[in-house]
Design a protein around this nucleic acid. Structure first.
Length: 149
DNA sequence: CACGGAATCG
DNA sequence: CGATTCCGTG
């Protein structure tokens, strides 16, 4: 992992993933509030932990390989020992209206992040006035994905 | 499994 | 507000 100009880069299965700092808050920031579910999912995905959850075919798509294990992990993080996939998935469904996630229909346990909307929802000041970064060619494509609506 | 209303909580 | 809990419906 490499930090640079408020952005973090993660190497995952030979793909370079980029998350803005605010999007990668495994712990609670200055505001000191509880971890959010989609933060938690990005955290597991970024680590490429592989077991419970992993990236899917399309950009931003992910597949829950072991739903009950994921629920158990999530429950541990939140101190909810009775967490299960039924309840976790309800929380995911609430993300549909918030435009953070949507379901990949037909594909079991498969959802997809709306990365650009994620930025709008959680970082109202986006995009920053001056994004003058002279990015390395390898990062430029991905940076563009994030900055375009 | 997936969806979404409703009540409830911290 | 962002879940958690519970549950009826398809």
């Amino acid at each position: 992992m490499v930090s640079n100009a408020g952005l973090k880069f993660y190497l995952i299965k030979s793909d370079v993933m980029l998350f803005p700092d605010w999007a990668y808050k495994p712990t609670w920031s200055p505001g000191s509030r509880q971890i959010q579910l989609w933060h938690f999912l990005l955290e597991l995905l970024a680590r490429g932990e592989g077991g419970a959850i992993g990236w899917g075919g399309e950009w931003g798509e992910f597949v829950i390989r072991d739903p009950e294990k994921l629920a158990r992990l999530w429950g541990e993080r939140k101190g909810k020992p009775h967490m299960n996939y039924d309840k976790l998935s309800r929380a995911l469904r609430y993300y549909y209206n918030k435009r953070i996630l949507h379901k990949t229909k037909g594909k079991r346990f498969t959802y997809k992040f709306n990365f650009s909307k994620l930025i709008l929802v959680n970082y109202p000041g986006y995009p920053p006035p001056a994004p003058p970064a002279p990015p390395a060619p390898s990062h430029q494509v991905i940076h563009h994905v994030f900055t375009s609506a």
